[in-house]
Amino acid sequence: MALAPTTTAPATESSRPTARSRGPLLKPLTRQTLLYLALAVIIVVQFLPLIWALLTSLMTPQETTSIPATLWPVHPTLSSYIEALQGDIGRYYLNSIIASLVSTLVTMVLATLAAYAFARLRFRWKRLALLFVVSLSLFPPFSQVIPLYMMLQGVHLIGTLLALIIPYSVFGLPMAILILMAFLQEVPFEYEEAAALDGMSRLGAFVRIVLPMIIPGLFTTAVIVFVGDWNEYLFALNYTTTATYTLPVGIVILSQTEFTTNFGVLSAAMVMSVVPLVALILLLERRIVSGLTAGGLKG
C-alpha cells in the first residue's frame, strides 16, 4: 500500500523534515497553515461517519434516536459494546479474518505469477488469455450467486468457510492481476537484462529482482484484495450459516431485528470492526513494507 513512505523519505517520523526546512520563513508558514487546514478538512470529511458511530456507540438506546439528534452522549455507556461482545462478534471477526486472509494469500500468489507472465513474458495467445481473465470479472456477481451455490452445494461446502474462501480467492484474481501488471510495468527491463547477464534464470530474476522492487505495489494490492473480501456481503450472506457468518452479515444480525435497528450496537460493531483493521494495516505498512522496500532497492 502506498502508505509506505516515498523511497526518498526517511523512515522514521522524528527525522522527517517538514516543509519548513526549505524556502523563506513566512511563506512556508502560511503554506503550512493551508496544509493543515486541508488536513483538517480531509479528516473531518473522511472520518465523519466514524466519529458519529463512535459517539452513537456510547449513547443509550433512547439517545441514539432522540429528536433532534443529541450530538454528544449525555449518559455515556459501554452497554452497546458489551451487547456486541456478548453477541458473537468475536466469532464473526474470526471468520472474517480467516476467510479474508486465506483468500488474499491464495489470490496474491496466483495473481502475482500470472501478472508477471502477462506483463513481462512473450507468448502466443496472450491477448486471448488476458481477455479471458478480464471478461470473467465483468459479469456482475449477483447474477452468479445461485449458480455458485449449486456448485458449492455439490461438493458439500455450503455453510463452511471454504464456501467463501474459494470464490473470494478466484473472483479476486482478475482485479489483482490488472493492478499488479500496472506495478510490474513500472520496473525497468534493464534490471532483468542485467540479471540475465549474471546468469540468473527468468524465474530467479522475477523472485529476487522484480518482486522486491514492487513490494509497495504488492502490499497495496493485497490490502485492496483483503478489504474487498472483508466487506463482501452477498456471498457471505448466502453461503454461510450461524457458525460461519462473517462481520458484514454478523453486524446485521447483531443490530437489527425484524422491525428495529439498534444504532448503538450497529455503531459499536462498526467501530470494533474497522479501527483494528486500519491500525493493523498502518502498522504493517510501517514495519514491514518500508523495511523490505528499502532493503530491496539497495540489494
Binding site: 471468520n95 458439500h156 463452511t160 450459516t241 457458525a243
Partner: peptide, 27 residues
C-alpha cells in the same frame, strides 16, 4: 459454539487439510 453445527460440514471437508481445519472452526 459447541452447539452450533454448521450445515454441510458433515461431508466433503476432507478435501484438503485446510478444509478440516476450517471445519473445526465451523463446528
Amino acid at each position: 459454539r459447541r452447539k452450533l453445527l454448521g450445515q454441510g460440514v458433515k461431508a466433503g471437508l476432507g478435501v484438503t487439510a485446510l478444509g478440516s481445519w476450517l471445519a473445526a472452526c465451523g463446528g
